[in-house]
Each structure stands twice: as C-alpha cells, then as structure tokens.
Amino acid sequence: MDDDRDAQDWLEAELADSLDEEWEIELEDSILSREIKKIYQKVHPETLPRPVYFTELLRLQAELIKLQDWVLHTGQKVVVLFEGRDSAGKGGVIKRITQRLNPRCVRVVALPAPSEREKSQWYFQRYVPHLPAAGEIVLFDRSWYNRSGVERVMGFASEEEVENFFHDVPEFERMLVRSGVKLVKYWFSISDEEQQMRFLMRIHDPMKQWKLSPMDLQSRIRWEDYTKAKEDTFFRTNIPEAPWYIVEGNDKKRARLNCIDHLLSQFDYAEIPHEDIHLTERVYNKDYERAVLPPELYVPRKY
C-alpha cells in the first residue's frame, strides 16, 4: 500500500514538473509593461482557458512522441517548413513541438544569413546538408523561401534570381518527395494590427528585445511588399506534392494547438510496441569506497 502511494506521489510530482516547465515558457508571454498588457487584453478578450490549453498541449505532445517513435521505427524522412511574418509565432510552435522529443532524431534548423562563399553556390546547396536521413524529422525555422520573401523584398536578390528560384523550387521539392521525404509547409499568418502589438510588446519587454532586428522593423515599413511577395509565393509554389498550409496566428495558443494537430494528421502513424523495461539491481562491491572530492568542484548551493 505504501509503495502504491509512493508511486502515485512520484507520478504527481513528475506531472507537476512537466506543467512547471510549460509554465516557465508561458511566463515569457506575461512579462509585459502594464499598459501594453491592458491594450493586448482588449484586443484578445476571449483567450483559451489555461487548463484547456495545457490539457490539449500535453495530449498532442504525447501524440508527437508516438509520431517520433513511428518515424524512427519505419525510417521515415520528414521536413517541416515554418514560414510567415516576423513575430507570427513560428518559434513558439517549434518550441512546443520539440519540447518533449528526442533531439537525436528531431532537430531544428535556423540558418543565418549566407556567407560570401554560400552566395556563390547553387541557391539550395546550403540547405541540402540539413535534410533528414532515415528516421529523422527536421524543422526549418525559415527555409529556402527566404529568397521569395525577405531577399526579394529587401533587394538582396535580383529579379532574375527570384525568377530562377520560382522556376527551380517546385522541381526541387518534387525531387525531395520522390526521394521519400515527407514535406510539410506552414505559413503563419497574422494581421497588421497584431504584428504591431507584438513588436510593441518586444520593445517593452527586456527579455524579448533581442528578438527585434533592423530587418524586423523594415518588415513593418514594407508590409504591403511582403504581402505581395507572399501571395506570389503561394501562387507559384503551391504544388500538389507539397502544398502550403496557412496557420491563423493572431491567437498564439490556438495557433500552436491547431498547427500540431494538423501536423499529426499528415501521417498515418501508429503506436510502436516497446519491450518492457526493467530496472536491474545495482552491483555492489564491498571493497569499493567512494572518493571524497574537494569542495571547490561543487556548484555553490545558492538556492
């Protein structure tokens, strides 16, 4: 009876720890100046209740673990692209997807601006080394669609280079699919007013100011140019082998749940049976004495 109670207490403690981990992430969204917080609440009066959000998130994350096991067991190769306007919520959903998964088979790729050497290469060349092997899932936090988005709008690519990209990308993606890669493309969409609100929140939140770059501020000025570039990208790259899926991102919590739920729906995965795991007894050596280590090796106990 005591053993059962101890096990129950341990499981409750583990669940509480998981919730604490998610709560720590949620705190990122709540450290705001009071005035900005008031404005935000007026714009978003019907927020998803926290218990509902946490319950659904943990349920979906449990399914993601099943998907991960299935991908590993069957040798699937998965690529998921996350595109969208700055502050649209791509990073938030990527964080929730990977939060409880094995980083050895699920990894995130967020490439910096290309080097001078990379600029002289075939455009897709720097993305190819990051593509998955069998049993891997790769999430691209922005992808080769930089060329039809920021590079085009900001003038980092010529019209000829953009046109060549639009000519090449459908065939490049068809090649990936023919090679056995499952390619899923998400575009996170937010309104003009919502992006302005999120930028204001970043400006007033010291813990998020690092997320603002000069390029982000330019995206506000060039909102309509980005809109035209997005529409052109959809029109020319929405192919049957790799269609675009738009995630409405004005409500962060709903966007995360909707995206994860949709991603799971793209796979006919099944739960992979595992052998029962038994913890073996430790081997004790009566002659072994644990060495006493010098105190300076230990991290100070400040908490």
Rank of each mutant, 00 (worst) to 15 (best):
D4C: 09
L15W: 07
D17Y: 11
L19R: 09
D20S: 10
E21M: 12
E28H: 12
R34T: 06
K38F: 07
V43N: 11
H44S: 11
E46H: 15
R50S: 11
P51M: 04
Y53M: 10
Y53V: 08
L57N: 05
R59A: 13
L60F: 03
A62R: 10
E63R: 06
L64E: 02
I65G: 06
D69P: 02
D69F: 00
W70E: 01
V71L: 00
K77C: 03
V80K: 07
L81I: 15
F82S: 02
R85S: 05
R85A: 02
D86E: 01
S87W: 01
G89W: 00
G89I: 01
I97P: 03
R100G: 06
N102E: 04
A110N: 00
A110C: 04
L111R: 01
P112N: 00
A113Q: 09
S120W: 03
Q125P: 06
V128F: 13
R147T: 02
R147G: 03
S148E: 03
G149M: 05
E151H: 00
E151N: 02
S158T: 15
E159I: 07
N164Q: 14
N164M: 08
V169G: 06
R174E: 11
M175N: 11
R178A: 12
L183K: 07
S191P: 07
Q195A: 07
Q195L: 06
R202M: 02
D205P: 00
P206R: 00
P206S: 00
W210D: 02
K211Y: 01
L212Y: 00
T237P: 11
I239A: 14
I239M: 15
E241P: 05
I246K: 13
K252F: 10
L257Y: 04
C259F: 03
Y269V: 04
E271W: 05
E271R: 08
P273E: 10
E281V: 09
R282C: 12
A291P: 15
V292I: 15
V292K: 14
P294I: 07
